[in-house]
Amino acid sequence: MTPPTEPKVTVVVVAGGDPPTPEEIARLPANPVVVAADSGLDHAQAAGLTVAIAVGDMDSVSPEALTTAEQSGTRIERHPPDKDQTDLELALELATRLADRVIVIGAGGGRLDHLIGNLTVLASPQWSGVQIEAWLNNTQVLIVHSHRTLEAEPGDTVSLFALGGPAKVTTTGLKWPLNDEVLEPLTSRGVSNQATTPTPQITVSEGVVLAVIP
């Protein structure tokens, strides 16, 4: 399988969980396109990010953040509170139309059900043409639909989880490699592997894999 070309456009989605850390903000690309999901608008403004679009039912964002956004030209897309999608999913729909790489920050913290929902939404097949990753404080979560190169130091822990069904996986640069092998969901086989190079490779020919680097 031929690896995809390097992403050309990156969108940063700021969710309403934990505020992004200064280290996460420092790692972002320069002058990113920023989409805020509801109270992610407060987090983005506090971090000094310029928000292009804010989306959600706006039930958690502060009135001050909304006023500042409107005055600065941020596009506000309001949705009714009684909706089938979370604010993060609405933000991802926007972001994936604009970019071929999406970085989600602020998706952790708070309620466990929100974290689980956020991670499963990231792995939806509707975003399979986009490289999606989430930064959760010191943990990086990458979605692998076909091929991804991970950024890791030798000795770093890399855990792989099949989502939604079995995944056929090939890896390089990991201590315990997989060679076109089936990784079953609801098992712990992919937990706590180790990187042996700075750029481990994950290729998924069937299914979808969540790669976690704590």
Rank of each mutant, 00 (worst) to 15 (best):
Q194L: 13
P166Y: 07
K168I: 13
I105L: 14
T170C: 06
R101K: 10
R189K: 14
L115M: 09
S128E: 14
L160H: 11
T139Y: 01
D57N: 05
L174Y: 09
V121I: 14
E184R: 14
P154Y: 02
T157L: 11
N179S: 15
L150E: 01
D87R: 10
G164A: 05
L92K: 00
A107Q: 00
G110N: 01
K83V: 01
V169F: 10
T149C: 06
D113F: 02
K175Q: 13
I103F: 03
E64R: 15
G108H: 07
Q140G: 11
L119H: 03
K175V: 04
Q85M: 13
T196C: 03
R75W: 06
A152F: 00
G106A: 04
V158I: 14
R101I: 02
T172D: 13
L136D: 08
G110A: 01
V121F: 00
A99L: 05
T67C: 07
A152D: 03
Q194I: 04
K168Q: 15
L112R: 07
T96M: 09
P63C: 07
G164S: 05
R148D: 04
E133S: 11
A99S: 09
S192D: 05
V102G: 01
S128W: 05
D57S: 04
A65P: 07
L98Q: 15
H79W: 12
A167N: 06
D100W: 06
T86M: 09
T120V: 15
I132S: 01
L92G: 05
V182S: 14
G164H: 08
A95Q: 01
A123M: 08
E184H: 14
N138M: 05
